[in-house]
Amino acid sequence: MEIEQLEKVASQVRRDIVRMVHGCQSGHPGGSLGCTELLVALYFERMKLKEADGKPVFDMNGTDEDLFFLSNGHISPVWYSTLARRGYFPVEEMATFRKLDSRLQGHPTTHEHLEGIRIASGSLGQGMSVAIGAALAKKLNGDKGLVYV
């Protein structure tokens, strides 16, 4: 993807973050806005993802693909927007952020079965230990995929 296209996606993700946080009058916009370029670069340019028909296919096992673990779950708006814009789930679902019965809660969870989410990330720092475990498993299995946290 060309840099101009990545910049447009990042700009849209920033708008999504502000809309989500404003829509529920709750959340952490600063951290999300500060990580926008990083997540857009990872998901739209750097990470090797499983795809079918140009859309990502979520495989909970993560074999033969790169993995991302969000350790600071309170910046979920940037991750949700990036995942939606990448095609993991409908963009319209972002309007449900932090609402009752929404899959998009303040911290990502696995029981909501949101595509792209492999671990719940509410407790700060846990993402690093999970990522280390995933990286070791990939190494032991001869999987060349990378792990980002």
Rank of each mutant, 00 (worst) to 15 (best):
V21H: 05
G145E: 02
F89E: 00
A41C: 10
Y80D: 00
V91I: 12
V9W: 08
E93L: 04
I75E: 02
R98L: 01
D16I: 08
Q105F: 04
E4K: 15
G133Q: 07
K139A: 07
K138H: 02
H28M: 09
L114R: 13
D53Y: 15
K50E: 00
E93V: 01
E37V: 06
Y148I: 05
T96G: 09
G106D: 00
L100K: 14
H74A: 08
V40P: 02
L42G: 01
H107W: 11
T63S: 01
V149D: 01
V57P: 06
G73I: 06
E37L: 06
R98F: 02
K50L: 10
L42N: 02
L70F: 11
R14D: 00
K99E: 05
I75P: 04
H28S: 06
A52F: 11
S32F: 10
V147Y: 04
H22G: 01
G145W: 09
G54S: 09
I119A: 03
G133S: 05
G127H: 13
S26E: 01
G27K: 15
R19T: 01
N61I: 10
E45C: 12
I17V: 14
V18G: 02
Q25D: 06
K50M: 03
R15N: 02
I132Q: 10
T63C: 00
V78D: 01
E2M: 11
F97I: 03
K138T: 00
S71W: 12
G133L: 08
Y43N: 00
E7K: 15
D16W: 13
A134T: 01
G125C: 08
R86L: 01
R118C: 00
M60P: 05
F97H: 07
A52L: 12
Q126P: 05
G23F: 10
N61V: 12
D143G: 08
S123P: 04
E2T: 14
T110H: 09
T110S: 06
L140C: 03
D66F: 15
V40Y: 04
V78R: 09
K139E: 03
Q105I: 09
R85V: 01
L33A: 06
L33N: 08
D101G: 06
L67G: 00
C35N: 12
A41G: 12
H22V: 06
S81P: 07
P29N: 06
E4V: 14
K55P: 02
G127K: 15
G142D: 00
N72F: 11
D59R: 15
G87W: 13
H28V: 04
G106R: 12
E112C: 05
L83G: 12
R15S: 05
P56C: 08
F89H: 03
D53E: 14
H111N: 13
L140P: 00
E93P: 05
E115V: 06
E93W: 07
G116C: 11
V78T: 08
G125M: 11
E112L: 07
T82M: 04
H107D: 02
G73R: 12
A41K: 09
T82A: 02
C35Q: 11
